[in-house]
Each structure stands twice: as C-alpha cells, then as structure tokens.
Amino acid sequence: MLRYLLRRMFVMGASLLAASVLIFSVVELVPGDPASFMLGTGAQPETLAALRTQLGLDQPLPLRYAAWAGAILQGDFGTSFTYKTPVAGMILDRLQVSLPLAVLALLLAVAIALPVGLFAAGRHRRAGDALAMGAAHLGVALPNFWLAMLLVLVFAVNLQWLPAGGFLGWSDPVPALRSLILPAVALALPQAAILARVLRSALIETMGQDYVRTARAKGLSASQALRRHALRNALIPVLTILGMQFSFLLAGAIIIENVFYLPGLGRMIFQAITQRDLIVVQSAVLVLVAAVMAVTFLVDLAYAAVDPRLRRA
C-alpha cells in the first residue's frame, strides 16, 4: 500500500514538472509582447526596454523558467502585468467562486445520475430503461452554455426567481448561493447524463458477472444482487469518470462563467490570455493542472479503498 502511494506520488511529481515546462513553453509562444501591451501603442522605445528589463523579459528562456518555477516552489506565483497584484492572491480570490461552483455542480450531477443509472440498469431492455437513456442521450448532447441561456431566459428573465448573472462575494451567503444555482444546474445536467450512462453500462456489465449469479443462487432477489454486489463493483469505472468530471468542472466552467459574469478562475485565465498577462496564465494553468493531478491521485486512493486487490500492490 505504502509503495503504491509512493509510486503514485513520484509519478505525480514528475508529471507536474513536465507540465510546468510544457505550460511555460506554450505561453512563451503567445504572440504579443506584454510590455508593449501594457504601455499601449504610443510608448517610447526606451520606456519599453526599461519595462522589459523590469519584468525580466530580456533574460534567456531557461533562466526565466528557472526563476518562475523556483518562485512558485516558494509560494510566489509572480505579479500580474496588468493588475500589478500578486497572482497567488488573484487565484485564491477566484477559487472562492470556482471551487464552490464545481463542488455544487458535481454533487448535483451525482444526485441526479445515481438514481437514474440504478433505475435504468434495473429495467434493462424495458421501457423505463429506454426512457431514462433517451433523456440521458439528450442531456449529453446539450451544450452547457446554451442550456445556461435557456435557464436564464426561463428562471431569471421570465419567472425572475434567480439572478441572471453576477456575483457579489460571500459576505452575504444567501444571494451568493442563489447566483451559483443556475450556473451549477447548467454545468451539472450534461455531466449527470454522462455519469448516468456510465453507471448504467457498468452496472449492466457487472450484473452479467458470475458472482452476481452466485448471489442470486444464495437467494438474493435481482434488485438485492444489484445493490449489494453489482453496485460496488460498478463504482470503479464510475470513479474514473467522476474524477475527470471534477477537473472539467473546475477549469471547464470558463464559458459558463462568461454567460453568468462570474468572477471565476476560468474567466480570469480567459481575460489574461486576451490581455497577454502571461504570468497569470502560466501560474493559473499550472494550479489547474496540479488540481487535476491531485484529484487523479485521490481517485487512485479511492480505487484502493474500494478494491482490495489494489491494496497489496
């Protein structure tokens, strides 16, 4: 078990290193000089050169990578070119929106997918199954930003139950939560559809296994065998999807954040790309990648918790 953990952690460290190099090189390829961007078109060449020196942009690439990576290891994510504030603080601010949004959406997705998947698998090849999977098919096909627009149209514009966008911070939690509901639903529905389909096919596959037949021979009814034996075994593929979905929800909410004018991490990265604020892009993407890897690691741990065969390796 310990060896398994250590090996996973080593792989994670190596991947992070590789990811940081990759991010740095890609961002360096972005055309447009942040210094001239900051000063505008009428800047004097001397001022430009001075600013470039000040930002460290005149140094050779490997040195700049080393300086950036070294600082990050000490918790210094650099200073935004455009806002002149520490990037670490900006990321933390934005996570206060993105993290609750992702968690809310994921919980919602699980809450919808679990009963639907169980229901459909229990009625395999019958009308209920076809109906549930038809709905899931439709859900998978929904672009979340379009769903978001429709939700705004119905619940914000017409019914006026919930705000159409914006976020005023957590100082007043009730309106804060209210402004996250529509975005979370828009994010969760397509994910729930995917999750329900995966859960259903995993359940159907495990229900065909010999040990489920053994369970039936013990005297368990079909639904007891499904819940007590098939579900836990079907959880393994579902966990993988769940991990991938969380990382998607954390970073992939960019477009939804744009629809609802939410000050989340995705929107910050999007704005930073358009403003050529390289240091923000680099650091934020690295944080996201690290988060994805951490989630993957947690999923691996969860595997080991579910499956005794992995605990030994």
Binding site: A19, L22, V26, M244, I273, L288, V289
Partner: peptide
C-alpha cells in the same frame, strides 16, 4: 501512456483557448 496522462491532466478547453490565442 505517460504522455497521454500528461495531456489528460491539462484542462482541455483552457488549452484550446490558449492555443487559438497563440495561433490566432
């Protein structure tokens, strides 16, 4: 496989946005 894992760890939409920004 490790290369695959690495690419999977990147938020695809963010990188696609970054790349279209790089390439125009």
């Amino acid at each position: 496989m490790r290369g695959n894992d690495l690419i999977f760890a990147f938020p695809s939409l963010v990188i696609a946005i970054l790349m279209t920004a790089v390439l125009g």
